[in-house]
Protein backbone atom coordinates (compact mmCIF):
# COMPACT_ATOMS: atom_id res chain seq x y z
CA UNK A 1 0.00 0.00 0.00
CA UNK A 2 1.20 3.47 -0.80
CA UNK A 3 1.86 5.74 2.13
CA UNK A 4 1.06 9.40 1.95
CA UNK A 5 2.80 12.59 2.83
CA UNK A 6 1.99 14.20 6.16
CA UNK A 7 -0.85 16.68 6.61
CA UNK A 8 0.06 20.14 5.39
CA UNK A 9 -0.73 22.32 8.37
CA UNK A 10 1.81 22.49 11.14
CA UNK A 11 0.93 23.00 14.79
CA UNK A 12 1.92 26.19 16.54
CA UNK A 13 2.96 26.07 20.23
CA UNK A 14 -0.02 25.19 22.40
CA UNK A 15 -2.12 23.95 19.52
CA UNK A 16 -1.24 20.34 20.24
CA UNK A 17 -3.12 20.44 23.53
CA UNK A 18 -6.09 22.18 21.92
CA UNK A 19 -6.13 19.61 19.12
CA UNK A 20 -6.11 16.74 21.61
CA UNK A 21 -8.96 18.28 23.56
CA UNK A 22 -10.96 18.86 20.38
CA UNK A 23 -10.43 15.25 19.34
CA UNK A 24 -11.66 14.02 22.74
CA UNK A 25 -14.77 16.18 22.55
CA UNK A 26 -15.51 15.23 18.96
CA UNK A 27 -15.04 11.49 19.25
CA UNK A 28 -18.51 10.57 20.55
CA UNK A 29 -20.05 12.65 17.77
CA UNK A 30 -17.94 11.03 15.07
CA UNK A 31 -18.74 7.57 16.35
CA UNK A 32 -22.44 8.37 16.29
CA UNK A 33 -22.22 9.82 12.79
CA UNK A 34 -20.35 6.91 11.24
CA UNK A 35 -22.61 4.30 12.84
CA UNK A 36 -25.67 6.16 11.65
CA UNK A 37 -24.33 6.40 8.09
CA UNK A 38 -23.42 2.71 8.07
CA UNK A 39 -26.87 1.75 9.30
CA UNK A 40 -28.74 3.99 6.87
CA UNK A 41 -26.60 3.44 3.78
CA UNK A 42 -25.33 -0.17 3.88
CA UNK A 43 -24.96 -0.32 0.09
CA UNK A 44 -21.99 2.04 0.16
CA UNK A 45 -19.76 -0.74 1.50
CA UNK A 46 -20.19 -2.80 -1.66
CA UNK A 47 -18.88 0.08 -3.77
CA UNK A 48 -15.79 0.29 -1.55
CA UNK A 49 -14.89 -3.30 -2.45
CA UNK A 50 -11.42 -4.21 -1.18
CA UNK A 51 -10.90 -0.70 0.17
CA UNK A 52 -13.17 -1.32 3.15
CA UNK A 53 -9.90 -2.09 4.91
CA UNK A 54 -8.04 0.98 3.68
CA UNK A 55 -7.07 3.71 6.12
CA UNK A 56 -8.18 7.09 4.78
CA UNK A 57 -6.87 10.33 6.20
CA UNK A 58 -9.32 13.17 5.64
CA UNK A 59 -7.48 16.40 6.20
CA UNK A 60 -9.50 19.60 6.67
CA UNK A 61 -6.66 22.03 6.21
CA UNK A 62 -7.94 24.82 8.44
CA UNK A 63 -8.63 22.59 11.46
CA UNK A 64 -6.04 21.52 14.03
CA UNK A 65 -6.80 17.85 13.55
CA UNK A 66 -7.43 15.33 10.76
CA UNK A 67 -9.95 12.52 10.50
CA UNK A 68 -9.02 8.87 10.24
CA UNK A 69 -11.57 6.67 8.46
CA UNK A 70 -11.40 2.91 8.00
CA UNK A 71 -14.77 1.98 6.44
CA UNK A 72 -14.76 -1.66 7.49
CA UNK A 73 -18.39 -2.56 8.20
CA UNK A 74 -17.24 -5.13 10.80
CA UNK A 75 -14.99 -2.68 12.61
CA UNK A 76 -15.73 0.91 11.66
CA UNK A 77 -13.13 3.49 12.54
CA UNK A 78 -13.82 7.22 12.32
CA UNK A 79 -11.80 9.30 14.70
CA UNK A 80 -10.26 12.71 15.02
CA UNK A 81 -6.49 12.64 15.30
CA UNK A 82 -4.10 15.47 16.22
CA UNK A 83 -1.83 16.43 13.36
CA UNK A 84 1.24 15.24 15.22
CA UNK A 85 -0.28 11.78 15.69
CA UNK A 86 -1.79 10.91 12.32
CA UNK A 87 -1.60 7.24 11.32
CA UNK A 88 0.02 5.98 8.15
CA UNK A 89 -2.77 6.17 5.61
CA UNK A 90 -3.45 4.39 2.35
CA UNK A 91 -4.99 7.51 0.92
CA UNK A 92 -5.28 11.13 1.93
CA UNK A 93 -7.96 13.62 0.92
CA UNK A 94 -7.20 17.23 1.70
CA UNK A 95 -9.26 20.39 1.44
CA UNK A 96 -11.21 22.98 3.39
CA UNK A 97 -13.64 21.47 5.89
CA UNK A 98 -16.86 22.64 4.34
CA UNK A 99 -15.70 21.70 0.85
CA UNK A 100 -15.09 18.15 2.10
CA UNK A 101 -18.52 18.13 3.71
CA UNK A 102 -20.18 19.44 0.54
CA UNK A 103 -18.40 16.83 -1.56
CA UNK A 104 -19.93 14.14 0.62
CA UNK A 105 -23.32 15.77 0.23
CA UNK A 106 -22.98 16.15 -3.57
CA UNK A 107 -23.25 19.90 -3.24
CA UNK A 108 -19.89 20.15 -4.98
CA UNK A 109 -18.27 18.10 -7.72
CA UNK A 110 -15.07 16.35 -6.74
CA UNK A 111 -13.49 16.53 -10.17
CA UNK A 112 -14.18 20.27 -10.37
CA UNK A 113 -12.63 20.77 -6.93
CA UNK A 114 -9.63 18.75 -8.11
CA UNK A 115 -9.31 20.79 -11.32
CA UNK A 116 -9.40 24.02 -9.32
CA UNK A 117 -6.79 22.61 -6.91
CA UNK A 118 -9.12 23.15 -3.94
CA UNK A 119 -9.00 19.40 -3.36
CA UNK A 120 -5.84 17.34 -3.11
CA UNK A 121 -5.59 13.59 -3.08
CA UNK A 122 -2.55 11.45 -2.53
CA UNK A 123 -1.78 7.82 -1.93
CA UNK A 124 -3.96 5.09 -3.40
CA UNK A 125 -6.06 6.83 -6.06
CA UNK A 126 -8.32 3.82 -6.57
CA UNK A 127 -9.26 3.91 -2.89
CA UNK A 128 -10.17 7.58 -3.19
CA UNK A 129 -12.22 6.98 -6.34
CA UNK A 130 -14.11 4.13 -4.69
CA UNK A 131 -14.84 6.18 -1.58
CA UNK A 132 -15.99 9.10 -3.71
CA UNK A 133 -18.32 6.91 -5.76
CA UNK A 134 -19.67 5.15 -2.68
CA UNK A 135 -20.47 8.42 -0.94
CA UNK A 136 -21.91 9.95 -4.10
CA UNK A 137 -24.44 7.13 -4.31
CA UNK A 138 -25.85 8.07 -0.89
CA UNK A 139 -29.16 9.86 -0.94
CA UNK A 140 -29.79 12.68 1.48
CA UNK A 141 -27.40 15.06 3.16
CA UNK A 142 -24.88 13.84 5.70
CA UNK A 143 -24.40 17.42 6.85
CA UNK A 144 -28.13 17.85 7.42
CA UNK A 145 -28.44 14.47 9.12
CA UNK A 146 -25.52 15.21 11.40
CA UNK A 147 -26.67 18.70 12.30
CA UNK A 148 -30.18 17.40 12.95
CA UNK A 149 -28.73 15.00 15.52
CA UNK A 150 -27.97 18.06 17.64
CA UNK A 151 -31.24 19.88 17.13
CA UNK A 152 -31.51 23.63 16.52
CA UNK A 153 -27.98 24.25 17.79
CA UNK A 154 -26.56 21.79 15.25
CA UNK A 155 -28.53 23.34 12.40
CA UNK A 156 -27.37 26.81 13.43
CA UNK A 157 -23.73 25.72 13.37
CA UNK A 158 -24.17 24.25 9.88
CA UNK A 159 -25.90 27.37 8.59
CA UNK A 160 -23.11 29.53 9.97
CA UNK A 161 -20.47 27.33 8.35
CA UNK A 162 -22.20 27.60 4.99
CA UNK A 163 -22.48 31.37 5.22
CA UNK A 164 -18.80 31.64 6.02
CA UNK A 165 -17.66 29.57 3.07
CA UNK A 166 -16.95 31.34 -0.23
CA UNK A 167 -18.89 29.37 -2.79
CA UNK A 168 -16.47 29.83 -5.66
CA UNK A 169 -16.68 26.51 -7.44
CA UNK A 170 -20.43 26.28 -8.01
CA UNK A 171 -21.85 27.11 -11.44
CA UNK A 172 -22.94 30.73 -11.73
CA UNK A 173 -25.71 32.10 -13.89
CA UNK A 174 -24.90 34.66 -16.54
CA UNK A 175 -25.89 38.14 -15.47
Amino acid sequence: MITTSEPTARLRPGEGAIARLACLVLQPVLTRVVRRVAARHPSLFARLGPHQATDFLIDPVELPFALHLRPDPQALVFRAVPRDATPQAGATIRGRFLLLLELIDAEQDGDAAFFSRDLEVSGDTEAVVRLRNALDDMDGSLAEETSAMFGPAGRAVLARLRRAYPDATKPQEYA
Binding site: D109, D111, A112, F115, S116, A168, T169, K170, P171, Q172, E173, Y174
Partner: peptide
Protein backbone atom coordinates in the same frame (compact mmCIF):
# COMPACT_ATOMS: atom_id res chain seq x y z
CA UNK B 1 -31.22 30.26 -24.43
CA UNK B 2 -29.81 31.75 -21.26
CA UNK B 3 -27.48 28.96 -20.30
CA UNK B 4 -25.66 28.79 -17.01
CA UNK B 5 -21.91 29.25 -16.97
CA UNK B 6 -20.50 25.78 -16.51
CA UNK B 7 -16.82 26.70 -16.59
CA UNK B 8 -16.26 25.56 -12.99
CA UNK B 9 -17.18 22.01 -14.02
CA UNK B 10 -14.85 21.84 -17.02
CA UNK B 11 -11.49 20.06 -17.11
CA UNK B 12 -8.68 22.47 -16.37
CA UNK B 13 -11.47 25.04 -16.06
Amino acid sequence: ANIADLIALTEGQ
